[in-house]
């Protein structure tokens, strides 16, 4: 009897391994191996169009970065965008979620519209925005002219200053709904007794937010925080379609720089070393975010 139970357990373990095997195979080929290879390539000189195989060149790629103006710009843009977008993501997603949370009845339309941009292809949304923001026949400029604000009509995407803001706005527009869902489900997880008790104690409005809601959402904050960090650092589709990193280098981000180096210049080694930096940034910000939200607990 003991033997059959043990045999049964053994058999189950074997099935368990068999069940994850296909997944492991796919992830090994398309994640583990590539990450390792990127790590190696980042210390190599490898132009895919000219070189037969990668040549080890030590830290040369990383030295080259410090002299590459476009890289420095991409790095600073990525950091600036991350700070601005992260703040906007958290503030807006939480505000939208609070509005939806207190609107108990008939909130179906509002909820659906805020979530909808997530499911439509981001690149096509950007395409849509490029023509809404166009100089001559863009509907935004037309609208401004019609309401008598023609002096504010502008070629939004070719002016460095406004182009940067529109990259941020369109990125937020397309993704903030997901953060809203996360916050909303977090809010629904707070027990209603807690709210009632707080109301009896006289906590209303901003006080309630500060003392009841935020401390009870720390778990949600950690999740939304990680999600937002990833969205910000992985920013690519919006600047790629809206501005291609331009005008000049005004909206270039690390992701775009990696794409340019790897798939336009075929500098696989250099691109890998930038990807290495980006991955390091993602890890640092994610850990930082976890540390901060843990401390709040």
């Amino acid at each position: 009897m003991q033997n059959t139970i043990r045999g049964r357990k053994r058999e189950k373990e074997l099935w368990g391994i068999l069940f994850v095997l296909p997944t492991c195979l796919v992830l090994f080929l398309f994640v583990v191996y590539p990450i390792a290879y990127t790590g190696i390539l980042s210390f190599c000189d490898y132009n895919f169009a000219f070189d037969k195989r990668p040549k080890f060149n030590g830290f040369n790629n990383f030295k080259a970065m410090t002299e590459d103006i476009q890289f420095v710009r991409a790095l600073s843009n990525t950091l600036v965008f991350t700070v601005i977008m992260f703040t906007l993501f958290i503030v807006l997603a939480l505000s939208f979620a609070l509005l939806l949370f207190y609107k108990k009845k008939r909130s179906w339309f509002y909820r659906t519209s805020i979530f909808m941009p997530i499911v439509v292809p981001a690149s096509l949304i950007c395409l849509l925005f490029t023509w809404m923001l166009a100089d001559n026949f863009g509907i935004l400029n037309k609208f401004l002219i019609n309401i008598g604000l023609s002096k504010y009509a502008h070629n939004w995407l070719t002016d460095a200053k406004t182009a940067r803001w529109w990259v941020i706005i369109v990125s937020i527009w397309g993704k903030v709904g997901f953060g809203t869902i996360l916050f909303l489900s977090g809010l629904q997880g707070i027990s209603s007794e807690l709210f009632e008790a707080a109301e009896i104690d006289g906590a209303v409005g901003f006080k309630k937010l500060l003392y009841i809601i935020i401390p009870n959402l720390s778990e949600t904050f950690a999740v939304v925080g990680i999600w937002a960090v990833l969205q910000c650092l992985k920013l690519f589709v919006t600047p790629n379609v809206l501005t291609k990193g331009g005008p000049g280098n005004a909206t270039i981000v690390l992701y775009q720089k990696i794409y340019n180096e790897a798939f336009m210049n075929y500098e696989m080694g250099y691109a890998s070393s930038i990807a290495f930096i980006l991955t390091a940034l993602v890890m640092i910000f994610s850990i930082l975010n976890l540390k901060i939200s843990r401390r709040e607990e």
Partner: peptide, 18 residues
């Protein structure tokens, strides 16, 4: 795996698929 940026993975995948 979810945390890794695609950019870090796509370069070797491109070479491999080529």
């Amino acid at each position: 795996v979810l945390a890794f940026p695609l950019a870090a993975i796509l370069i070797p995948i491109y070479i491999m698929e080529y």
